[in-house]
């Protein structure tokens, strides 16, 4: 209902801060809290990998080829237990997964941060200056977004070769356009609003208007898109590594671990591919659960 209220009926003043309200609304979904908890566990595990892993999977001195392709739960030559089995090098899968998480998360977060920064600059420029600046930037964005990310990244990796830095470049290239578009559309909406007009009438300097007034109001949709895109970036990196076009064998991300086990799959040695995949799935799902609830909380259109 949106009746025009008679004179006296003002809205009740909000007592709690908006930040508190968002946190409370976020906590309403048990799924989202579960996702958040899972994400914290995953991030902490990845950060603490060298201390929590049973072995250092990249220290060749700790590997024993006699232990290769052991099933989950098998005992190691040194008396420990390979809870998730070993790969063809005799590497403990659990340790491999912990270290793989580090690489996957690093690539995902780093590429998202760079892509957000670039998208922010171009999106704000397009919205603020309009005219031909807007036309040129949005044309590029449109063309870029009409091609699937996987294809562009694949061709880029084929051109650039393997490596962490290179895959970040490829992921930034395929992602910046999303942010540019998100930022531009919310900035355009904000620009129409009175407070920007007021700031212009007050003749505040342009950078101040853009960064102090325009930017903070464009952030909520950006945060949601960026969260989802971290998950996408991780998935994309894993896919490229699986196809042999992502990371080199010296930096095994989760995707590379899965790829490594693919050849043993048909002979029933499922664990080499399966468990790194579960870790990948858990990571992406945790991020998506969190992003989903943030989207609902920040979407004013579902409020009634």
């Amino acid at each position: 209902m949106s009746d025009i209220a008679p004179p006296a009926a003002a809205q009740p003043a909000p007592v709690e801060s908006p930040w508190r309200r968002l946190v409370a609304e976020f906590a309403e979904s048990r799924m989202a809290l579960f996702g958040l908890g899972l994400l914290v566990v995953i991030v902490v595990t990845a950060l603490a990998a060298p201390w929590v892993s049973p072995q250092n999977p990249y220290d060749l001195a700790q590997l024993d080829v006699m232990d290769s392709k052991l099933p989950p739960g098998a005992a190691s030559a040194t008396g420990g237990t390979y809870w998730l089995g070993t790969d063809d090098q005799g590497r403990d899968m659990l340790s491999g997964i912990f270290y793989g998480l580090r690489i996957s998360l690093t690539v995902g977060v780093a590429s998202t941060l760079f892509a957000v920064a670039i998208g922010l600059v171009f999106g704000l420029a397009a919205a603020y200056f309009g005219g031909w600046v807007d036309a040129v930037i949005m044309r590029i964005v449109d063309i870029q977004l009409s091609f699937p990310a996987i294809l562009v990244a694949l061709v880029l990796m084929a051109t650039l070769g393997q490596g962490v830095g290179k895959i970040v470049v490829a992921l930034v290239t395929v992602q910046w356009a999303y942010y540019a578009r998100t930022i531009r559309s919310s900035a355009l909406v904000e620009r129409q609003k009175e407070y920007i007009e007021a700031a212009k009438v007050l003749a505040l300097p342009q950078p101040r208007i853009v960064f102090r007034h325009l930017l903070p109001n464009c952030l909520p949709p950006l945060i949601v898109v960026a969260t989802v895109q971290v998950a996408h970036a991780i998935s994309l990196e894993a896919t490229l590594s699986f196809l042999g076009l992502g990371l080199p064998i010296t930096e095994p991300s989760l995707g590379l671990l899965i790829s490594n086990g693919f050849q043993y799959l048909l002979s029933g040695k499922y664990w080499i591919s399966f468990y790194p995949g579960v870790a990948l799935l858990a990571t992406i799902m945790a991020i998506n659960l969190v992003a989903d609830q943030m989207r609902d909380v920040l979407n004013p259109r579902l409020k009634r």
Partner: peptide, 21 residues
């Protein structure tokens, strides 16, 4: 959400594992 989060290539492997192997 699970379907959205599953990496395509890994699902392929799991499908092969389940339905073929």
């Amino acid at each position: 959400i699970v379907g959205f989060s599953l990496p395509t290539f890994w699902v392929g492997l799991v499908l092969i594992m389940l339905f073929s192997v």
